[in-house]
């Protein structure tokens, strides 16, 4: 963002925007950290299976880190850096059974679509409790996802969305879901 501002001769405006995003992210994550020091972090499952394999992020992956900053505990695999690895469907089923939230469920827009594509996961608690959220609230023409477009430079909004999902008591007064939507 700052680099583009520099190229277009607006470095100061660019830095101002960048700093406001960074400040917003840090202040939200600090509030969540204070809250989660005394409460339990919900367990979070992300992605959907590709046939009989399920790709999960490693501990330092950007998605696992933002979920952690939002007060969640993402199921991860071993690995260094920003990597993801497939896990066996048995392990995935075990994780899904104990998850409190399920996020980023591919192209599914309803619980029915999700369970018809993944019948083995139709009876897991997180689905029965309808605690499944997808990052498809905003799309761009023709088949793009705004989460992967503007979301790349607005991690503060993604963090607030996730905090809204995991700990609504902290943020419900000031934020409504922007990139995420609950599946019904």
């Amino acid at each position: 963002m700052v680099a583009v501002a520099e190229i277009t001769g607006r470095r100061e405006i660019g830095e101002e925007h960048f700093n406001s995003i960074a400040t917003s992210y840090i202040s939200t994550s600090q509030r969540i950290a204070e809250h989660t020091a005394t409460t339990t972090r919900p367990r979070v499952m992300i992605n959907t299976p590709y046939r009989d394999a399920w790709v999960l992020p490693s501990e330092n992956n950007y998605m696992a880190r933002i979920i952690s900053d939002a007060g969640g505990c993402c199921y991860t695999t071993e690995g260094k850096g920003n990597t993801s690895k497939p896990i066996d469907i048995e392990q995935a089923l075990l994780y899904a059974e104990s998850a409190d939230f399920w996020l980023n469920v591919g192209s599914c827009h309803t619980l029915q679509e999700l369970t018809s594509q993944n019948p083995r996961f139709a009876k897991v608690k997180v689905v029965e409790d309808k605690k499944v959220y997808n990052n498809t609230a905003r799309s761009t023409a023709p088949v793009g996802s705004d989460f992967w477009e503007s979301g790349v430079v607005r991690p503060d909004i993604i963090l607030k969305d996730l905090a809204m999902i995991f700990h609504p008591e902290i943020i419900a007064q000031e934020h409504t879901l922007y990139y995420y939507t609950r599946l019904n």
Partner: peptide, 23 residues
């Protein structure tokens, strides 16, 4: 096609015995 659909298709071409339900 877009990324998500392409990935689903490529994974299908890799074959799998574990995607079959009892029904």
């Amino acid at each position: 096609s877009h990324e998500e659909a392409l990935k689903s298709f490529v994974v299908w071409t890799m074959g799998s015995l574990g995607d079959v339900s009892t029904t």
